[in-house]
Design a protein around this nucleic acid. Sequence first.
DNA 1: TATTAATGATACTATAATAGTATTATTAAT
DNA 2: ATTAATAATACTATTATAGTATCATTAATA
Lengths: 135, 135
Amino acid sequence: MNFISRDTDYAWRALMFMAKNAGEGVVTVDEIVQEEYLPERFLRRIVQKLAKKGILVSHKGKKGGFSFAKSPGKISLIDIIKVFQGNVDFTNCLLKGKVCPNVKKCALRRKLQSISKTVDKELRGITIMSLLKGS
Amino acid sequence: MNFISRDTDYAWRALMFMAKNAGEGVVTVDEIVQEEYLPERFLRRIVQKLAKKGILVSHKGKKGGFSFAKSPGKISLIDIIKVFQGNVDFTNCLLKGKVCPNVKKCALRRKLQSISKTVDKELRGITIMSLLKGS
DNA sequence: TATTAATGATACTATAATAGTATTATTAAT
DNA sequence: ATTAATAATACTATTATAGTATCATTAATA
């Protein structure tokens, strides 16, 4: 079972590349693609989504590209996971897509809830900046 | 994003039902279906898999059904997740299905590895028995 | 102002995973 | 022999994932 999806993975690689190579400057998708061996059209859509979600800023036209909308120290893995995979919530009740009559007192749910909180906290602590320094 | 899949969820409900209502005895799929509102054919396949993996024992023929292969105190959520979703490993490298050249020194990987260990440990502690008592 | 080098938007396709159904065979108690 | 259970296998429908293709828009600059 995977935890982070391919989209999240690709996005993270792109962000790490940007932080490492351009800092506050503008980077084109082609530059990322060349270094990171990611599929161009696909990565394009990914960074577009990051821009829409306020993590990157897009600059159209010649000399355009993408730059950070907020500092790499403030972008954590949880932000990226939220963009591509939704909330980290391990407690979804899966009974035929409906909520089971037992939700309120479901012991499993409570356990999973506590685990998701722990994971959430851990993910929050992983920022682009911290990984850049730590590697 | 979900963490446990529908299969795992259904399996867990079935096991809880069995522990609650039959203990060491034999339970038929129909009995579980009636109480838990799960799709019959589907649940059938699920408990069959549990039997193959050594969590339940199947008894064919009249008066047949399924019983526990090991005590409900020794069946933990991690066992069931492993049956239906594979290992809890948050560290899969997703670069085009290949391993990226950076695996060894990948800082993200190390972080995710530590998170999976934590989760793994938590899941190990959740047993059928403990939830039965705790609810 | 025409050219060029970038992103933006949208629609499409292929593959795999998930969820569920249907059918027929086998087994063991009575 | 009958009956009430599981076993095995194959099928289908839906959704998610992964990736591709095309054309529009924008802004620098020669």
